[in-house]
Amino acid sequence: MVMETLEQIKARIENAISGAKPEIIPNESPSAQRSLLLDPAHAVEVAKFLRDDSQLRLDYCSNVTGVDWLDLIIKEKVKVKKVVEGVEKEVEEPVERKRPGYLEAVYHLYSMALKHGPLIIRLRTENRADKNHVPSLTPVWRGAEFQEREIYDLYGIIFDGHPDLRRILMWEGFADHPMRKDYVEPDDYEYEPTPHDEVLEKTKQHHSPEPKP
């Protein structure tokens, strides 16, 4: 059975839940799996709608992924009008825009009842530091329980409403979120017989090399 298009689903969500503003995230790659970005305030409501709606019946939350997007400097060319040598001209000027980083949770939904999917929904935190809350969808799909815990552990997204949000893979008392892109590993001295590049730099800090004979 074929699922409705993303546009149709988006329109129906907007109809059913007032205030929800899902946004379609394009995907240029050959897979063409586009996704819906939900706003955190209405996410649980929308999720319930997706699960219970008779045409969608997305009763199966297959995969939950955390993604870390760092602060990004986007360089673009913007056309501006400028007076060059007395004549007004349209010139392209490079502008730098800073996109603040955020953490993202991506849910892949399928329907076991109607055998279609996937519908991909995304939730984003406001930033990577203190405003790292999103609502948990575990009350809607229990299958997200361990995966959300894993994302909390490795990325540090706090899922509000999760029944049991503890570290799952690393030990209690571990301070960092190791899957973040800016995580620095403990330097536990990687010895290699023929060190090169970064490993060599690391190795050097542990030894002063033996003098040449």
Partner: peptide
């Protein structure tokens, strides 16, 4: 278990870093 790594990260009585 420490905050970032095991404490200590190795047992010096058993293991020495090989020389470069």
């Amino acid at each position: 278990f420490g905050g970032h790594d095991l404490e200590p990260p190795n047992n010096p009585a058993v293991w020495h870093a090989p020389k470069l």
